[in-house]
Write a protein that binds this DNA or RNA. Structure first.
Lengths: 158, 158
DNA sequence: ACTTACTTGACTAAAATAGTCGGGTATTGG
DNA sequence: CCAATACCCGACTATTTTAGTCAAGTAAGT
């Protein structure tokens, strides 16, 4: 099982994308500022997200990214899969050749756990996360902090 | 979340210990052979398992390890904890200071997942695993393979 | 044109993993 | 007693992965 900052960053960035505007594309620079993730690293992650068609890109000035489909239909497990982090906890990637070609003693345990985690993450969509109270208030705080920092009196709402 | 070979080896070794004899202590050399885990590495793992009182040791010839308590009362989550692998999936170890002292957008998601995984692994005891059909047959195979390899006609049963 | 912002690929520092190695020390069977 | 067994312990190391950086593009809007 690999579930590290890479997968967490990807989910966080996708959630940020979901929250901020459905009309204009969101640039990576914005996400980078709001979520404190390095721009170069985001580029790497979004390259994979685009290949998996979880986002679509708009190039040129005013460009950025859109969600590939409705937020109700994008599930957390997909995002983590897209950035190459497997949620699999077995040693043999589920193949069952863990001990010199044979199955190992604890294979079925890890196989079961993998399914458990996958089911959990595949039952939660981006829309579900946006609806959460804590997510709403944190997103609000992040926008306010940026307004103060930038001192640019932009229209706060999308 | 860290769930790698270290944790898997620890659980596998503990399960092997549970399966093979409750009377005589089981030596690491035996476990090493049956489970294809390097002896030196097992020593490292058992040092931690002993500190957590999940096993007790008997030194000298004929020595080895016993389970620290009944297999019904040793849960998988404890074993993984003992070898220093945290099942926590948050970036801040649950503290909530993920984004420059503040909570990050996806904190509650990872927090919830961590609890989910912990609950799953904490509901399964070594005794539960031993009772599984697949574990029984794999253990049987492992013993038979060793008997052939060693060609030493030891009493197969404990 | 010029700028913005996506696109790609190569490169790298730091950390963690998965071990090895070499010395111990306790115990016991002969 | 003494040699063999097997636990005990700490230092060391190769490999892999993570978490990025950097540079050189390409496409598109103003």
């Amino acid at each position: 099982m690999r579930l590290t900052t890479k997968g967490r960053y990807a989910v966080t960035a996708m959630l940020d994308l979901t929250i901020h505007c459905d009309d204009k594309p969101v640039s990576l620079a914005e996400i980078s500022q709001r979520q404190s993730i390095s721009l170069s690293y985001l580029e790497q992650l979004f390259s994979k997200l685009r290949q998996s068609e979880l986002v679509t890109s708009v190039r040129g000035p005013g460009g950025g990214y859109h969600l590939g489909r409705a937020s109700e239909n994008i599930f957390i497990a997909e995002i983590i899969d897209a950035v190459n982090e497997s949620v699999d906890t077995t040693n043999c990637q589920g193949k069952g050749d863990c001990q010199g070609g044979e199955i190992c003693l604890t294979h079925s345990l890890w196989d079961q756990l993998s399914h458990e985690i996958h089911n959990f993450l595949n039952a939660i969509s981006l829309a579900d996360l946006v609806a959460r109270r804590d997510v709403k208030s944190i997103a609000q705080r992040q926008v306010e902090q940026l307004l103060i920092l930038n001192e640019s009196p932009q229209a706060g709402a999308c």
